[in-house]
């Protein structure tokens, strides 16, 4: 019998070790797995790679990931903290303690989608002619210069959804899906916090993400908006 529901945070986070690569969904507050991110910050790990849209939203979850220097590589579209003073992660990057792969958001999403879809690399015109692609492999298609982008995969993906059933089928509310759908497919192990566990299975047409991409489901509280 299939049952992907886990009873507590320890079971949800089991197996995440030093040096793991971890995709974290979320855009603004929507789809941000705050319970899982906080738990990750509390694990005694180093050398993590984070693959996230905007690093400040991870920091705003209230996690010790950066203060405890657990992260040494970040793939992201936005590495800027709020305000004028540098955030702890900006300082770590400036000091060379953290490396950074800064990626346009559409390329970021597509690299992850490709990772879950068995496409090792693809060409895109985005970022051609900018400093991001200097020295990279480029090729012309139909008169347009494109740059080769490689797929992104990860050991783990952390997501939040509104509802799940025991098969791991997910239902998203509002704009919760964002990067989560692609990340779930691109990661070896996908862990999801959900507001509501459904004893009765989701109706097939309300399951936005097929359970085949989900390994663990944890019930967690809804979160208010980040101020």
């Amino acid at each position: 019998m299939i049952n992907k529901v886990v009873g507590d945070l320890a079971a949800a986070m089991a197996g995440i070790g030093a040096g793991a690569s971890i995709m974290i969904s979320g855009f603004g507050n929507a789809g941000m797995p705050k319970t899982l991110v906080r738990a990750l910050g509390g694990m005694d790990l180093t050398g993590l790679t984070l693959i996230v849209n905007a690093i400040r939203r991870i920091d705003e979850c209230g996690t010790s990931l950066f203060s405890e220097r657990r992260v040494d590589h970040v793939v992201t579209t936005a590495f800027r903290g709020p305000g004028a003073a540098p955030a702890s992660y900006e300082d770590q990057w400036k000091r060379g303690e953290m490396t950074l792969d800064i990626v346009p958001q559409g390329t970021f999403a597509e690299r992850i989608r490709a990772g879950g879809a068995g496409i090792p690399a693809f060409y895109t015109p985005t970022a051609v002619g900018t400093p991001l692609v200097e020295g990279r492999e480029q090729r012309d298609f139909n008169g347009q210069t494109c740059v080769l982008e490689e797929a992104l995969t990860a050991d783990f993906a952390l997501l939040r959804a509104e509802k799940a059933d025991r098969y791991g089928n997910l239902h998203f509310r509002g704009t919760q899906a964002n990067f989560g759908s692609a990340m779930a497919a691109a990661a070896e192990t996908t862990i999801v916090e959900v507001a509501e566990f459904c004893e009765t299975s989701l109706r097939p047409d309300e399951a936005h993400l097929p359970g085949i991409y989900v390994q663990r489901v944890l019930q967690a509280p809804r979160w208010e908006a980040t101020p």
Partner: peptide
């Protein structure tokens, strides 16, 4: 028609691209 709207020059802060490169191209 060249467009410059992401700030990689700031000394203290990290870079921010977001979706502008994709939007400008697409």
């Amino acid at each position: 028609g060249d467009l410059a709207n992401w700030d990689a020059l700031s000394s203290a802060k990290g870079p921010l691209i977001g979706g502008a490169m994709d939007l400008a191209m697409g």
